[in-house]
Write a protein that binds this DNA or RNA. Sequence first.
DNA 1: GCCAACGTTGGC
DNA 2: GCCAACGTTGGC
Length: 155
Amino acid sequence: MRHWLMKSEPSECSIDDLAAAPGRTVPWIGVRNYQARNFMRDEMSIGDGVLFYHSSCPEPGIAGLAEVASTPYPDASQFDPKSPYFDAKSKPDAPRWQHVDVKLARKTRLLSLAEMRAAPSLATMRVLERGNRLSITTVSADEWRAVLALLKKPA
DNA sequence: GCCAACGTTGGC
DNA sequence: GCCAACGTTGGC
């Protein structure tokens, strides 16, 4: 089993939105970056662990634990002209964008970006690398364990 | 709102 | 295939 960190803007889908979704599961639509798509399409497996990260908000950080809950399938929003994720160049017989479903495991306390940066055990995390903008990044088993350990402590 | 960093586009 | 211009991300 592998581990991932997936960014979501709380204004789009927060940890509470995920908790309130049917089956506590949402389709991870809207990814329009090839590297992130390839992670979902080629490398994820059902049951993989996901760190659910709030980005572009007053308190960025890890807000919960989730898991990959489906195999990849085409992102319907790419064919919807009314969607902000519409992609005119993607054809239904050759969908460009695919995604997986993500299911909540449990909401956690917020492990803030500042706390993540201050933790030596997380120094290798891809999401913390300078200039990183990728919305899905890999998480090593050691990093996953380190995050769980930090979550057990009070903020 | 600013701006650094990065990915994508498109002319050549 | 190069690379400048442009658009987006995302923390601050």
